[in-house]
């Protein structure tokens, strides 16, 4: 090989090697950086849409009352009026999407009511709490209370 740079020839060769490395890096960068990276900030712009695409499990109260419009009527003025349906009934987006295919299951009042109303010293003192066994024995809460408006006693309640 011809010597072009005198006694520094080997250094120039090394420098060329480094330069080649940097070029390879820049090419890799141009090829492999994902599309849309850095459009809004230092992240892949597509990640926003992908986060939005996650399926919904809780339909939201508006979807429930589309069909069950009688429930807000019952609940009106009561202690449970502001509670969203799925707080007690669980996630029902599938049911809202296709009520025929996906049946909603009525929650077990003995378990459900106690979750919120069993006595617990960490609960705010003014929050209504009652020991279900002491208060009603084996009787279901809904035997006397209307679930959607609990101060409303059912007919025949003691």
């Amino acid at each position: 090989m011809k010597v072009l740079f005198g006694h520094k020839d080997h250094l120039v060769r090394m420098a060329a090697l480094f330069l080649a490395g940097i070029v390879v890096f820049l090419v890799l960068k141009a090829v492999f950086v994902p599309k849309g990276f850095g459009v809004y900030g230092h992240y892949r712009a597509g990640a926003l849409e992908e986060n939005r695409a996650h399926p919904v499990a809780y339909a939201g109260r508006a979807a429930c009352v589309e069909c069950h419009s009688d429930v807000p009527e019952t609940a009106k003025g009561g202690g449970h009026a502001f509670i969203r349906c799925e707080a007690c009934h669980g996630p029902l987006a599938a049911h809202a999407g296709d009520p025929g295919e996906h049946q909603a299951v009525r929650p077990e009042s003995k378990v459900l009511c106690a979750r919120c109303h069993a006595p617990n010293v960490a609960r705010p003192a003014r929050f209504p709490q009652v020991d279900p066994a002491e208060h009603a024995g084996d009787e279901a809460c809904t035997a006397c209370h209307t679930a959607h408006n609990p101060r409303q006693q059912k007919e025949g309640a003691k």
Partner: peptide, 14 residues
Amino acid sequence: HRITKGLTTACCEA
């Protein structure tokens, strides 16, 4: 995926 569709979060919903 909820709040960008006008729904509230699942924890708030529940």
